[in-house]
Design a protein around this nucleic acid. Structure first.
Lengths: 343, 343
DNA sequence: TGCTGCATCGCAAACGTTTTCGGTGCGCTG
DNA sequence: CAGCGCACCGAAAACGTTTGCGATGCAGCA
């Protein structure tokens, strides 16, 4: 069913049909009614390729996330909740969110280049931002609207939103120190993710501010940020001659592995080892003892990401007069029972 | 950068450029070399809209999953792992997987209709199949290639893959009965998902085969199949005057909530209540005591789904001569410590 | 009446690509 | 030398849509 068939059926020109459907003012009210009625009857919906070709726009926004060989970072509910927020914001604009999965054996930079070159999407969300991320330079150079979930050292001024990892690390260390902990382990991503650097820097600064010497052996860089990652990181910390009494995790999923490893070692999480995490997923909400962690509304975050992206798109700038979005979102402490004073 | 600019730069016609890039045989080897070289130099990639418009194909395959208001079923790693398998199969065919999120306030049927009408994708994966699923009838009528993850009573012959829920329910009941359990609770989805019916039927049949009367109060239909769902379903079962000694769950995520609720009631999972689940996510792998559950390779499943879909697409039928895929995948028991005999 | 302005609509170009068709030039055969 | 086949390439149509431009008709006004 093309616009031509619809126009023929109504005995009017395709131009008028198009104008009627797109809500232009220069079309008679009665004509518009007939067009809309016929479109409804035949279930006509404009062909996206034709429209895209003419307008140079696809009405699709890509959200790029990485996958690894077996599952994906995408796997935790972190992104799922963000998507929900994004879609809430998009619904009013008839924009489609398409999730672009970047396989681990594909370079994220190449992946972005191909997506952009094919004009598959009008704009992009990018996540898993690296310390130096060539995608950012590329998108700026090509003038493709995008927003980054995470800061980077790359590129000039562009929209981004990040979580307040400095604040989290600082507050967590201070809280643990106030409760009497002196040896505090930290598990950060072993990859080039920028948040790992940010987190570690803040951790060291907070230790120094509390007059505690930094022990490099207490900083475990874990390639995986999954349950397995938490498991093995705990392994490493338990193997030290002087074990830490507390652990700081860069997400919440790892806590599951941490608990498991502690149990296996005959230790009780909380009692024998304090644990603090970051809430990225409701999965671990039911851990026992309840995990003390830092929380944030991911739906709100997704919504704000969408607003920031739309504000950077010429076609939507007027409807989103919020300027350049560069925000650090504070996280709120949710006290559990996993971080009492050391025994 | 369009094909015209590229052709002008090379002083040849756009038709020849197109033929060279698409590997046609009627183009001189030297000419082809020059074209490929120039394309590489300028980073030319064919515009997807133009190509789609001409060919009537988008090279994009949609995977439709549902979201709820806060997160998405998508949230557990179930789908993430499937995506990985799908992409492995797609990589060789230059097909893109786009994840289409269907918000809960949007009817899945309407959503499919819009996606199809816009010609946004060439084919579809659909999941969360309902007992009577209008999407299936619609896709068959419109002759849109698709494959369903799950069986349905709707529609005629079409490709699908489902997990062996009958086998799982039967084996689980038999195992529990063999260990001395007589009162076995079952938690199924409270929605119209077909798997809920299949599972419950097999559960009742297995009870009958073991000479155990079916007690409707032991069958809890839970709207949510999340941790919360498991939590509240456990609530309901614990409230019975004669509690069950074992619980059968339709997934693994719920087990987290079940454990939590049992702990709160002063009960120890495994010791005071046997629990068996289905592995859909590695998250619960670290539950303690280890959950006895049924497992399957989701990556393989995804790969097979992709093969089944490609086999139903005219353009790929020759490269995938496997006929109509209608398969029930058996699941393998992974024995844990959560289902000992009753005390 | 004649002119202006407005509402409404048709015509046709344009977006970028693929593919069919026909044409050119060349080598080979008889 | 005539004829044929083949390799290679250019021209142009087609996909479905939006939109600028011009045409038409009619009301209002002098």
């Amino acid at each position: 069913m093309s616009i031509r068939e619809l126009a023929n059926h109504l005995n009017i020109s395709i131009g008028t049909v198009s104008r009627a459907l797109n809500g232009r003012s220069d079309v008679n009210a009665e004509t518009r009614r007939r067009v809309l009625e016929a479109a409804e009857e035949f279930g006509y919906v404009p062909n996206q390729s034709g429209r895209s070709l003419r307008q140079g726009t696809t009405n699709a926004i890509g959200f790029m996330v990485e996958t690894n060989s077996e599952t994906s970072t995408h796997g935790d509910t972190f992104f799922s909740s963000i998507y929900v927020g994004v879609q809430k914001e998009f619904a009013a604009h008839h924009l489609d969110l398409v999730v672009l999965l970047c396989p681990s054996d594909d370079d994220p930079y190449d992946h972005v280049r191909r997506v952009v070159a094919r004009r598959f999407v009008d704009a992009l969300f990018i996540s898993a931002i690296q310390r130096h991320d060539p995608r950012i330079d590329f998108l700026i150079e090509r003038d493709i609207p995008f927003i980054a979930l995470g800061r980077s050292l790359s590129g000039g001024s562009h929209p981004w939103i990040d979580l307040d990892f400095e604040g989290v690390a600082t507050k967590a260390v201070n809280r643990l120190v106030a409760r009497g902990h002196r040896r505090i382990g930290l598990v950060t991503p072993g990859t080039e993710l920028n948040l790992g650097y940010v987190f570690a820097d803040a951790y060291r600064a907070a230790l120094a501010a509390n007059g505690i010497a930094y022990d490099p052996r207490l900083l475990v860089r874990s390639e995986q940020t999954s349950e397995e990652g938490g498991y093995h990181a705990t392994d490493a910390l338990l193997a030290l001659d002087t074990r830490p009494t507390a652990m700081l995790l860069v997400n919440e999923i790892m806590a599951i592995g941490v608990y498991r490893r502690l149990h296996e070692a005959g230790l009780t999480p909380g009692r024998d080892m304090a644990v603090i995490g970051l809430r990225q997923s409701p999965q671990a909400r039911f851990l026992s003892p309840a995990l003390t962690c830092f929380d944030i509304s991911l739906v709100d975050l997704g919504r704000r990401l969408a607003q920031g992206l739309l504000a950077s798109m010429p076609a939507y700038r007027d409807s989103h007069p919020i300027g350049l979005v560069q925000e650090i979102w504070p996280m709120e402490l949710v006290a559990g029972e996993s971080d009492p004073p050391p025994r």
